[in-house]
């Protein structure tokens, strides 16, 4: 029980990263590879927020005037993850546009077949 309460968030984050890595390395369809890239992004963001958690802390917003400052969670990883989520969606949009153009040029999205046509 204490093992679960210590490590459950780490198991979730690393499970997502490993499943995403397996999809990127093994699957043949290009859109499935891009879905795997998005799952790796979500796993890494979950890991970063897990590092910044403090036990019995609260959200870093001074909602009541008398809130003490030493019982809040760390605000720095949350600011960094906010940037990382937006950059992740920008990369995904560009990758999807390249995949659509590749389909129009070759007629298939199978990565093994596209690699055989040389320049």
């Amino acid at each position: 029980m204490t093992f679960l309460s210590e490590y459950i968030y780490y198991i979730g984050a690393f499970g997502l990263i490993f499943i995403g890595l397996y999809i990127v390395l093994v699957k043949k369809n290009l859109i499935k590879v891009i879905i795997g890239l998005s799952i790796i992004d979500t796993g890494i963001n979950l890991f970063l927020i897990t590092i910044g958690y403090i036990r019995d802390g609260t959200a870093p917003v001074f909602s009541k005037p008398g809130l003490k400052a030493n019982e809040m969670v760390d605000p720095v990883p949350q600011a960094l993850v906010l940037t990382a989520i937006v950059i992740g969606v920008a990369i995904l949009a560009l990758a999807i546009s390249l995949a659509v153009k590749l389909y129009k040029h070759h007629g298939t999205l199978n990565l093994r077949k596209i690699n055989e046509q040389k320049w």
């Binding site: 490590y7 780490y10 910044g52 958690y53 403090i54 030493n70 760390d74 720095v76």
Partner: peptide, 10 residues
Amino acid sequence: FGIPKTKIGD
């Protein structure tokens, strides 16, 4: 898990 790690947050 759950222990403060940086000093800049304070």
